[in-house]
Write a protein that binds this DNA or RNA. Structure first.
Lengths: 190, 190, 190, 190
DNA sequence: GATGAATGAGAATTCATTCAT
DNA sequence: AATGAATGAATTCTCATTCAT
């Protein structure tokens, strides 16, 4: 279904690609999507040409960064979901998503402004995570740990919102915990 | 406190300035800060030159838009605070801020990316609101309606976060209400 | 039908636009369409921005150059057609087109490679000329000066071809005349 | 005369070189010289590196394509010249050159824009053909079939021009024949 | 004061050519 | 020899800001 015929990719090319993704993630996250591609290339120690060989469009790069993030989160989520009781799993994953999503989240908007094909790759990863979240939510609700009237869209909105709140708070762990307290207590049936 | 000597400003100039702010608010809110200044000028029915005479920098314009929003919110907040019991006032104002802040909120980020002087004008308005929020929070906490361990920073973070959540949800009023339920229930002492 | 509402255009702006066209004609003609826009701007003594304000696309500029050429030719053709007997008019106009069309004629191809809208402006001018040529051809054929089996497409092809031949010949007037002799003698009924 | 010490060239290398020339001829002819080298390499089933090993410059490749064309034409011309009467040989060869030269003829211009060394290889092939054409012209003139005042430069210019005319006409054989009629009748003594 | 033309520093992207594998 | 990844100069176009009218 992911119809691309992926060549093995030479060792050094793979390294460059990985490095580029690494750097782009860092840069986009800390300084926003407005950063010039050239700067990302320089930071990765390659020429612009190389960047564009791997990601034919800035948007493609953006998408690849997102996908990588999503895949990481999906993997960790899967593990937590397997190891913990429904209610705990739900909380742990909620926290996980928040911690992993930190940074300027204009990403999504930047991508939303773009054409559909760019989304194609994202859609898949996105659906995987959403499915996981839906299952976690359902489990927590059956266990009576989360208000039954909430749907997946609200959960996603709350994740996004909590992420924003955390950004505004900076690193103070006590304050962050207080936010989690509010959200988790608010999520419980009332 | 605002050290500038403001001349009276001719009638038509004032009208232009007002119209520009109006339009800029609308445009920035619905289409983001990336919109070219020229387009804003055109939408306001003036030349770019006029825009830049009133707001010597795009960032200045952005700041002015923010200030206007903040002042509106501050005024409405003051009124609500005067009319309602502490607990109700807190909730009403929380909702108010959320509803008024709707739209592409890259604003803040765009401003954050800029130099300190641009903030100067904002700081004042910002402080006014923060003082109001602090008072509301304190009142609600004294009334036992809000967890006592929350500080102003957390409140602000939650406001920002709830705003983001609402954006992700679109216009569905029932879903929006469910988010408010979670947040307000979570804010209560547990 | 030419639906554009043309503003009067300020004096200096008009001068720049004219100069730009002048220079672009010269440059494209002598050095081909590959010349960077920036260089054209420089040669016209303006910044790139100005060039792109007047011609939002390199292709637009190309088109405008063509249109100008075509219009010049059309005007001169009209005059010659009015003043001379059919047979002479035909020859005179044939020569005229050749002399005016000199230069690297990749123009047309460059434009042909582009989208339809760019052609729109050209089409009109092009049709005007083609109508004139059709009339001239018809007149000359009625006068028995040109083979009756030739159609407009062949005439156009011959114009293009003779133009190419002239380019290959450079400025030697005697040689150019010999080419004309061949073509005109060949055009006569046999 | 061609001062390079040519090594025998391994069998597969020779095959690659041939294939490259084949493909480049096709591609340049149908799509113009703007096509990226990489694409030509891909179409030939080799890597760019290989292309550049055989032809150290895009221009070199262009030149080689031209040479190949010229050599083909020269060979066929020689055969026709040997088989036919002077007048017929002249006409047949004229047609031959036209038919073989079809396609986007920016070639020559592209080469003309380049430095002299690239021409060096061409010069030789070019001189061969020109000698043949001179002889054919002379023969036809002696036979009284072609105007005596025409020189080789005019013949070449007419060949180029007729080629252009044909390109403008597309494939319609009747129209093409009408062009030939004009040219051949024009070439006859008047 | 208002206007909108002019400016030019970027920004994304392409492509001939080089070079490590 | 062949490969294709890497390179970076060059190119088109945008947009905040300035300035002549």
């Amino acid at each position: 279904m992911s119809g691309a015929k992926e060549r093995p990719l030479r060792a050094d090319a793979a390294r460059n690609r990985a490095r580029l993704l690494e750097v782009a993630t860092e840069v986009f996250t800390t300084r926003g999507v407005g950063v010039p591609t050239e700067e990302i290339a320089r930071a990765a120690g390659v020429g612009v040409g190389t960047l564009f060989r791997h990601f034919p469009t800035k948007e493609t790069l953006l998408g690849a960064v997102m996908v990588r993030r999503l895949e990481t989160i999906a993997a960790q989520t899967a593990q937590l979901a397997a190891e913990l009781e429904p209610a705990d799993a739900f909380c742990a994953c909620f926290r996980l998503v928040i911690e992993q999503s930190a940074g300027k989240n204009e990403f999504v908007q930047a991508l939303a402004a773009a054409d559909v094909d760019a989304h194609a790759a994202l859609r898949e990863s996105s659906e995987v995570i959403q499915a996981q979240l839906a299952k976690l939510l359902d489990g927590a609700q059956r266990a009576g740990a989360v208000r039954p009237e909430l749907g997946l869209p609200e959960l996603i909105a709350l994740l996004a919102g909590t992420g924003t709140a955390m950004e505004h708070l900076g690193a103070d762990p006590a304050a962050r915990q207080r936010i989690f307290d509010v959200v988790f207590d608010g999520l419980r049936p009332h």
